[in-house]
Nucleic acid binder design. Sequence first.
DNA 1: ACCTGAACACCGTTCAAGT
DNA 2: ACCTGAACACCGTTCAAGT
Lengths: 219, 219
Amino acid sequence: MARSSDTALKARKAPQQARSEATLQAIFEATIQVLLEDGAARLTTTRVAERAGVSVGSMYQYFPNKQSLLHAVLARHLGALTDAVEAACAQLEERKLTEISDGIVAAFISAKLERLDLSRALYRIAPELDYAELQSGMARRLDKAVCAALLSASDMRLENMRRVVPLLLAAASGATRAALEAGGKRAQLEMLQEELPKLCRAYLMASAAPRKAGKRDAE
Amino acid sequence: MARSSDTALKARKAPQQARSEATLQAIFEATIQVLLEDGAARLTTTRVAERAGVSVGSMYQYFPNKQSLLHAVLARHLGALTDAVEAACAQLEERKLTEISDGIVAAFISAKLERLDLSRALYRIAPELDYAELQSGMARRLDKAVCAALLSASDMRLENMRRVVPLLLAAASGATRAALEAGGKRAQLEMLQEELPKLCRAYLMASAAPRKAGKRDAE
DNA sequence: ACCTGAACACCGTTCAAGT
DNA sequence: ACCTGAACACCGTTCAAGT
């Protein structure tokens, strides 16, 4: 019954003037700066407002509460990640199954690493944000893009995609998260970059059958 | 340089009298009750103390701050989970690789499901707790137990265990977490219980070679 | 020795008063 | 119309006063 417009998590007003647009941007940047420099525990509405150069009251015109502010920051970050993976999927169509798998994994990891510090910081605050909805929205987008790419594979046909792909995405996210949270040290990341592609390939190949007989796919 | 005894996260005193022991237990139970009934946002020191039948000040004799209280609750939960998986690993020694894999996965999932609601609630508060240390301690224990079991496999020898097992554990945790957080609905859980074993088997088999020739392992 | 709970510092949020 | 920031309610934590 509730329409998304009355959830308390959306930004309160769409920026209608150029000044508002700039203010909104300043608030986002201030939030990220405070988060990365002072940490989640010191991320205070007052501090963000001060850093952004607006008053607290003014900030509450854009976001109805602190949660909605953080929610917006997280949504932008996850959106960028999803965009990157979608683009990679589009590039990979019609290749062989293992190439598609490797390409998607590489795109996923490199998108996470692009803003490693932010990714790590957001893992820590996400759970406070009722992010289930956000999470599942992104999962759906990723699922759709990955399925489309895999369906186009030239050599193999995946069985039971509806189950395989979501589980694979969850497993890959979990492994990546663990590597980033465990300090994000070079050794951890190398392990991830070497082993995660193997895991994905192995699971996909175990869930696939060769395409129509008669097609050669050696080499 | 810091010894673990001066981290602010440990319980402040070991219960030395029977009464203290009971109080501590009451505090733990009150915390879990408040967490599950009122939610993380309403989990207040005052509320927990009231529910446990002690004063706030008294609670601060046992735990130096709210974080340490939640940390202790999380540690107990993860400890129970790890105990269960360790026990399963011990039972599974000398079986075939796929049997060991399936057995461990089943034990892991069923341990999480045993306290499904608590698991879900703790996912949400864990990030506030500087739980990296806890997490890595548990990961080390799990890693050790799982490696021991896999090493004993009668049919296959795992290559590169140092990399494969941690990644597999992270992936399995991630997939389980996603299923529980996505509502923990029956459909999600069935998917997990069907597909996660396949994923683990596929990755392990892809990383393993047959044991010394001459050993029959059909049937 | 141990417990209590009022008091303190601080944070999220609001809204009367300004421009 | 839009912004400001003092004021309010509430929470984590402490410590003087009790037993």
